[in-house]
Computed example of a mutant assay.
Amino acid sequence: MDVLVTGAAGRVGTAITDHLSADQYDFTLLDVVAHDGPGETVEADVREYEAIRPYFEGQDAVVHLALIREADDAFRGDDRGLGWSDSLQSNLRGINNVYQAAVDAGVDSLLFASSNHVVGMVEVQNAPAVYHGTDVVAGHDEPHRPDSRYGLSKAYGEDLGRLAAEAHGIRFYALRIGAVRSSRFDHPYGDAERGWEAGRWERDSSAYAEQVARMKALWQSRRDLAHLVECCLRDDTVDWDHFYGVSANDRRWLDDLAYARETIGYEPRDDGGEWTAPPESRG
């Protein structure tokens, strides 16, 4: 299968190529920075339609991960601003260009890296209790409740994908990713440990504990993320749909695993609740 991945040099992109076999997938890995990976690697900017368009020819599927943050520090998951921003404009342009190129090239399926932030107000309005296994969940039928301009851009990407599917016949999958981290921090203590290394808190602090609790709810291991992507790549039944990108965490508040299992065969292997300490501390 020929698969184009945009934003391939990032955390999610490398999780895909680290865990999916290059024998089964012929990857074209597109990013704005020089990078290595299995398959062809190219440098191009998704904001420039003519620059990316040739790489869509002959592809069976496109996985759109690219995110342009630029210099706008306000374009973050915790920003509640309603105003326009350069980063918002750039990302909407990138989404439109990728979807248009996929349709123009006759690609069979399009996967979009959406985010938990598309329903993030569930977390904002119920934190920190939501990290500890309360009855508060965002099920598969949860409507868009973006918590930021970042979440708003992801909601836009989901809705544009539905239009692409219903108006142009491309299969569309939105992956509402919880928290995928680099290989070094690929565990539910990852964010807490990174903050400890940066001197933001101590390991015995409440701030450290809250980061762990949040990740035990939101974490998706790199191998589970790659498995979710593969489930979508292999599927030929979905017209358009979304799935939560989380591992089988016992306290998850993003909860459609039964739906994802039945619809595309997603069977995550990891559970944040099984971790009681960071890797170097485990017996």
Rank of each mutant, 00 (worst) to 15 (best):
L92N: 14
L110M: 08
N91G: 10
R76M: 11
R269T: 12
Y55E: 06
T28P: 04
A258R: 13
T134D: 12
R47N: 03
D271G: 05
R53D: 13
F185P: 04
S115N: 06
V180K: 01
V103M: 09
I170H: 03
Y244T: 00
V136C: 04
P268E: 02
A165K: 02
A66H: 02
Q220L: 12
E262I: 01
R222W: 10
D224E: 09
D31V: 05
R282Y: 07
V98S: 08
L257C: 04
T28Y: 06
S87C: 09
R181Y: 15
L110Q: 04
G161Q: 06
A22F: 10
R162L: 07
D60T: 08
D186L: 08
L82T: 12
R251T: 15
A71H: 12
F56V: 13
S114G: 11
L65T: 04
I52Y: 11
R145C: 02
W275Y: 14
V33F: 05
V136I: 15
R234S: 07
A260Q: 03
R47I: 07
L20H: 05
L163C: 11
S115F: 04
V62H: 01
P128F: 05
P128H: 08
D79T: 01
L111R: 03
D270T: 13
D86M: 02
C231W: 03
T6K: 00
V130G: 09
G272L: 04
W84A: 06
V124A: 05
R162M: 11
